[in-house]
Nucleic acid binder design. Structure first.
Lengths: 337, 337
DNA sequence: ATGAAAGCGCTAACAA
DNA sequence: TTGTTAGCGCTTTCAT
């Protein structure tokens, strides 16, 4: 069995409390005593039992991060950022993925997957406001991403509409006139992709360019294959845009593959802009212009927001925190000035 | 404050033990009593405190997975697989990354980042056997990946030498004669990439093809940029292979980008084989032929191995468990039959 | 079938 | 400055 405070205390011939004081770096311990206890600690190889400490303190020092899919580099990179941000506060991160399924998201939000956490950062896709309203878990929750709920939980995102408009504006400035949006979800107005679609429409309208439905490509998901299928479907329908703004980089990459297969050259025939700035976009035959959200900022805001809830305890939250983004220009929108 | 067993017991007018029996689905409880207690549980919204349960049982139900970099899709995908495999056993996964730094790997192996775990799955890069030998942590440890240590910890990997030979054999069968290896680490013979380098050399030798050092490209890391730099360096040195076997897909993708920039066409001028089978390799202008390790199997073996150590307690382990791999042929090695 | 009570390892209030 | 003790919420003998 592992050595406990008691073992150390006996070994050093002092009380448990004294050992605890040394372990917790309590100020008022004589150097001699500290040294003596420390020797016993080293000798016995004592390591504090965090479970016990946490039971006592009511905190575990663990937060959970639940994202749709770790296979999506954006979320993987974001997870890395959250782990780092949490580490700065001596907090460890328990990672979970929901596959973007509503059921899974509900389970996670209820804490059924991990009931040992101080707080939860959730990036929902399908979750509905009612699911959250029904939630009877007192664990602080912070929401991430494009979905917006009118609920007492802090929410962190970039300004998706503004970002989408920036992307579309960039395409317009490059002389593109027929700009498609790839990644709409038609099933619900409240779904993600909604805001980016809105930004696309707004910017086109502002520029006096038509935004017909034929240029809106629906997808079944937000992975490379979905992007490929959506692009193929649009081309098969006889629609031939000279630019594509994709919901995210993965969709953009899938679309670029199909364009390549059809002999359409990026950026000459079709310019492409993605969203997320995943590392993958910096490589390939054609590097990808994209909207780059400040992932570090998002991670930091999320962790700090959670910490705030933990400390404050009382106030409900419900703040909307915004991280910055920028447009990163690469090869996929070069040329054809 | 949260409701505890005691609250429920008082509310239902029974003893704590009875409530505990109901919560834990103990057999010998009268249906009437069960219903009565259940009603109180529902009414008060009781949720068991896992920390307390774990303190009592000595287990937390959490294992940690530490990989070098979540930004590497291979590890992200593997992490997803581990989370799923663990979920089947009602175990949650705490994720950590080490950046492949020895110091971080030591810390993690010592459990300094997360001292609430039942077991640890570690994918080391720089960690040395002595670091592990010095480790004074009784938490079961399972090792993942190419590094091999002669230590009492289970180790899970694919047969890296055989996999590398398969890749090289494939290139030879495609008529390639000057096959480079990209991703050597020259600093130590024990480092990862060693086995794959060995397989490259063995297969070439077996086929009666020279394996000069000029065809071995050293890298500083195993990301896309490292691959790009290594490829550029080799070409700058006047070496012009007609095939490249890369340490992993990321290195291969970086190399392909440089080949593209230099006007060398893949696969016509240079064929490329990667390692890991990350989703990214299925897209891009040229899809990537690669060695595909069975990630699900690796994850399952790792989790089960850990569970075994937890149950058995006693026996030291030290088993070498091997998962399968297969060659996935894509465009990067097509043509030039 | 149900209850009483000890104790997992730790922290914190209080005492000395 | 150091020691004593109660108790965090739970499981688990041992009684009843």
């Amino acid at each position: 069995m592992r050595v406990s405070l008691k073992d150390v205390a006996e070994h050093a011939g002092v009380s448990i409390k004294t050992v605890s004081n040394v372990v917790n770096k309590y100020q008022h311990v004589t150097p001699a005593m500290r040294a003596r206890v420390q020797r016993s600690i080293d000798e016995l190889g004592y390591r504090p039992n965090l479970t016990a400490r946490h039971l006592r303190k009511g905190r575990t020092g663990i937060i959970a991060l639940a994202v749709p899919e770790l296979g999506n580099p954006y979320f993987a990179e974001l997870a890395g950022a959250v782990i780092d941000a949490a580490a700065e506060h001596d907090i460890t991160v328990l990672l979970d993925h929901t596959r973007g399924e509503r059921e899974q998201e509900i389970l996670v939000s209820q804490g059924f997957r991990a009931r040992v956490i101080d707080g939860l950062i959730l990036s929902p896709l399908e979750l509905e406001a009612e699911d959250l309203r029904r939630r009877d878990d007192d664990v602080p929750l912070v929401l991430l991403g494009e979905r917006e709920y009118d609920l007492p939980h802090d929410h962190i995102a970039i300004d998706n509409v503004a970002a989408a408009r920036t992307a579309v504006r960039h395409l317009i400035s490059r002389g593109r006139a027929s700009i498609a949006y790839l990644g709409a979800r038609t099933d619900s107005a409240n779904r993600p992709a909604h805001l980016r679609l809105k930004g696309w429409r707004e910017e086109l309208t502002a520029a006096g360019i038509a935004a017909p439905d034929s240029l809106v490509g629906p997808v079944g998901g937000w992975n490379r294959w979905d992007g490929a299928k959506a692009m193929a479907r649009m081309l098969d329908a006889g629609v031939r845009p000279d630019a594509v703004f994709a919901y995210n980089d993965l969709v953009a990459i899938g679309a670029m593959r199909v364009l390549h297969e059809r002999g359409l050259r990026v950026p000459w025939d079709v310019a492409v802009v993605g969203f997320d700035d995943i590392a993958e976009g910096q490589f390939g035959a054609v590097t990808l212009t994209t909207i780059s959200p400040d992932k570090q900022a998002i991670a930091r805001l999320a962790v700090e927001s959670l910490l705030r809830s933990l400390a404050g305890g009382a106030e409900p939250g419900g703040r909307a925190l915004t991280a910055r983004f920028r447009l990163v220009e690469r090869e996929s929108t070069l040329g054809r000035r």
